[in-house]
Structure formats: C-alpha cells, structure tokens
C-alpha cells in the first residue's frame, strides 16, 4: 500500500486538488481511501465520500492537532489495510504551521497557493522543506512573473522537491500529480517509522483547559518573549 500525507495552509486547495487527482486514480481502477485530520469540524469527509471511496475523519478537538495526528497514524493505516486500499491519502488540515506531517519512507505532499505571502517558506518552514512534492495552486489568477517568482522561492527552500502547478477548480495539472502519486513507495507498516520533522512541545496548564490569564496560572512548559525590541526573528 502507498501511504501519502498531504499538508498545507488553510484554503490552499488541498481537498480540491486531491479530489481531481483521486478521480484520475479511480478511472485507472486504483483502490483509494482517504483519511482527514482536522481540528474542529469539516465537510471534507462528505466531499470525498461523493467519490464513492472509504473515508475516515479524525477531529482533534481540544488536543493539539499535531499531537493528535501521530498517535492516530496506526489507526488510519490499519483501517486502510482492512479496506484493502492500494493508496491511502491522509489530508492533515489541522496542523499548525510549525509542524510537518511528513513521514520517512512515505510520499509527502505540501499544497500552497500563489496568493499567500511571498515569505510563506519562512512561515511554514518544515511543512515545505520536508515535502517530496510541492503543489502550487491558484496560478490562474496571478501573473506569470509571480508564478515564476513563487516557484523559485519554493525551489530555494526545497531544492529536491518536484514542483507541480495544479488548478483546484478545473483540475488542470492534477494528471501530473496522479502520475507522481503512482510512483510513491510501497509501505508494509507504519509502526516504527519516523517523522521527518519533530513536533513542538506542548505540555502546559492551557493544554488541560486553563483559561485564566496570568503568571500564577501558568504551569508546565512555558516560554516568554524577551521584552526587548528586536528586528523580527523567531519566537
């Protein structure tokens, strides 16, 4: 079975791109199942179901979506095996931009759109740099120059990635994505595999439902911004 993770900022077109791509796979008689991880609520499950394929949806709710994602990988993998899937596509929408769901030995796709900030590579670092394929959407509404600049930015962050431009509305370009999906490695088991990038730490009083603001309510792993004016920089 091929196990493929798909990540990207909200509204970048992940689901739209995948639906077009899955249609091509189904036309070739490939057995596809989809897993979708989200935070609060999603209708994407129904969109995939309309394709007539098995879908599993996981909502992280009160838990950090990244930390929800990893323990559920085996659940999804085993479910897909039971469905005798040839390709499992796991779309992760809930992950924060610090995280990347990419797994060593499994095809990893990131979807970004031409309308997002030109500095997006800095903002979502690992999600882009750990991907095997970077899909760029919404190219139909920006200039050729911007498409080229955007693409170049992606190449600089992730020189090894295959970069594909796909139109989520018309599906243009999804055929090439399908071809690349078919070349994804076969995976026997997910257990024991490793993430390509670490997850951020998250053990503090707010993780367990604390709502009050103030030093005395903050327990666990807490880090404060140094209150000096700096020229940007991280955290």
């Amino acid at each position: 079975m091929k196990f493929v993770t798909v990540a990207g900022p909200p509204s970048s077109g992940k689901t739209a791109v995948l639906i077009h791509t899955i249609r091509h796979l189904l036309k070739d008689g490939i057995k596809v199942v989809v897993g979708k991880i989200d935070c609060l609520g999603t209708n994407d499950g129904e969109k995939y179901q309309k394709l007539g394929i098995p879908v599993i949806v996981g909502l992280s709710g009160d838990i950090c979506p990244d930390h929800f994602y990893v323990p559920n990988l085996e659940v999804i993998f085993n479910w897909a095996k039971e469905k005798s899937a040839q390709i499992t596509i796991l779309e992760t929408a809930g992950l924060c931009h610090r995280c990347a769901p990419a797994i060593k030995g499994c095809l990893a796709i990131s979807v970004v759109d031409n309308l997002s900030n030109i500095d997006i590579p800095q903002k979502i670092g690992p999600m882009l740099s750990t991907a095997d394929i970077v899909v760029i959407t919404k190219g139909d509404i920006v200039s050729q120059a911007e498409r080229e600049v955007y693409r170049r930015k992606m190449e600089m962050v992730n020189p090894g990635a295959e970069i594909l431009e796909v139109n989520g509305l018309t599906g243009k370009g999804s055929l090439l994505l399908k071809t690349s999906l078919m070349q994804a490695p076969e995976v026997d088991t997910i257990t024991g595999r490793e993430l390509r990038s670490s997850m951020p730490a998250c053990v503090c009083s707010y993780c367990t439902g604390e709502k009050r603001i103030g030093k005395s309510f903050q327990l666990g792993y807490i880090r404060k911004i140094e209150a000096t004016e700096t020229e940007g920089g991280r955290g």
């Binding site: 190219g139 139909d140 050729q144 693409r151």
Partner: peptide
C-alpha cells in the same frame, strides 16, 4: 522543462 510555458489571461492580476 521548468518555465517553458508562459500564460496570460484576463483573470490574472498582480498580487504582490
């Protein structure tokens, strides 16, 4: 190969 096709349509705008 990369960037062999340039495209132009009425729907395109500059966004930067």
């Amino acid at each position: 190969e990369r960037q062999m096709v340039a495209q132009l349509s009425q729907a395109m705008n500059f966004v930067l």
